[in-house]
Simulated scan of single mutants.
Amino acid sequence: MNIGKISASDSGFPVPHKKFSLEIKGNKTEVIISRHEDNFMIIATQIGTLGTILHARKEEGVSINPTFNVSVIFGKRDEPMLVACARQLIEHISCHGSSMPLVLSLGLKDHSTETLKAIVSAVIDNRLW
């Protein structure tokens, strides 16, 4: 994995967001993280389009241990690693005190564990929660 220089911008218009790029396994990866009024949205693309769109949220309930629901809204439904990526991110968001859901868009050339771990790590390093 080769992560290049990350450039970030944080602006309040129209919503707080960060945009940066990094190189993962030879693929330039563009990432946008935004915080909306009712959810977080993360777009990570190596192909210049949205790709698979997932929705992840913490389930409200009486259980001491939280549960999370991840569903594919649009795109590849047979890619368990994409679901795992969304689950890792919503768990991280939740354990840092936010109950807002996540909309995650992954337009990737490479769906390997290494690529998805690099994306999760970069998003966590540049989080808006």
Rank of each mutant, 00 (worst) to 15 (best):
Thr49Trp: 14
Thr49Asn: 15
Thr49Ile: 14
Thr49Ala: 12
Leu50Asn: 10
Leu50Gly: 08
Leu50Lys: 13
Leu50Phe: 11
Gly51Asn: 07
Thr52Met: 02
Ile53Tyr: 09
Ile53Glu: 08
Leu54Gln: 01
Leu54Lys: 01
Leu54Val: 00
Leu54Ser: 03
Leu54Phe: 01
His55Asp: 00
His55Tyr: 01
Ala56Phe: 00
Ala56Lys: 00
Arg57Trp: 02
Arg57Thr: 09
Lys58His: 02
Lys58Trp: 02
Lys58Gly: 01
Lys58Met: 08
Lys58Arg: 11
Glu59Val: 10
Glu60Phe: 06
Gly61Leu: 04
Gly61Asn: 14
Gly61His: 05
Gly61Arg: 08
Gly61Gln: 11
Val62Lys: 09
Val62Leu: 09
Val62Arg: 11
Val62Ile: 14
Val62Tyr: 14
Val62Gln: 10
Ser63Thr: 13
Ser63Val: 06
Ile64Met: 10
Asn65Glu: 14
Asn65Phe: 14
Asn65Tyr: 10
Pro66Glu: 09
Pro66Lys: 07
Pro66Ser: 12
Pro66Phe: 05
Thr67Trp: 06
Thr67Glu: 08
Phe68His: 10
Phe68Thr: 00
Phe68Tyr: 12
Phe68Ala: 01
Asn69Gly: 10
Asn69Pro: 01
Asn69Ser: 08
Val70Ser: 04
Val70Cys: 01
Val72Met: 11
Val72Leu: 13
Val72Thr: 15
Val72Pro: 05
Phe74Lys: 15
Phe74Gly: 10
Phe74Asn: 13
Gly75Ile: 01
Gly75Tyr: 02
Gly75Arg: 05
Lys76Glu: 12
Arg77His: 09
Arg77Thr: 12
Arg77Ala: 05
Arg77Lys: 15
Arg77Tyr: 04
Arg77Phe: 03
Asp78Ile: 03
Asp78Asn: 13
Glu79Lys: 07
Glu79Ala: 13
Glu79Met: 12
Pro80Gln: 08
Pro80Cys: 05
Met81Ile: 10
Met81Gly: 12
Leu82Thr: 04
Leu82Cys: 08
Val83Gln: 05
Val83Gly: 04
Ala84Tyr: 06
Ala84Cys: 09
Cys85Gln: 04
Ala86Leu: 00
Ala86Trp: 00
Arg87Pro: 00
Arg87Thr: 03
Gln88Leu: 08
Leu89Arg: 02
Leu89Ser: 06
Ile90Cys: 04
Ile90Met: 10
Ile90Thr: 06
Ile90Leu: 06
Ile90Trp: 01
Glu91Asn: 05
His92Val: 13
Ile93Gly: 06
Ile93Glu: 02
Ile93Arg: 06
Ser94Asp: 07
Ser94Trp: 00
Ser94Arg: 04
Ser94Lys: 09
Cys95Lys: 15
Cys95Trp: 08
Cys95Arg: 15
Cys95Glu: 09
His96Ile: 05
His96Gly: 03
His96Cys: 05
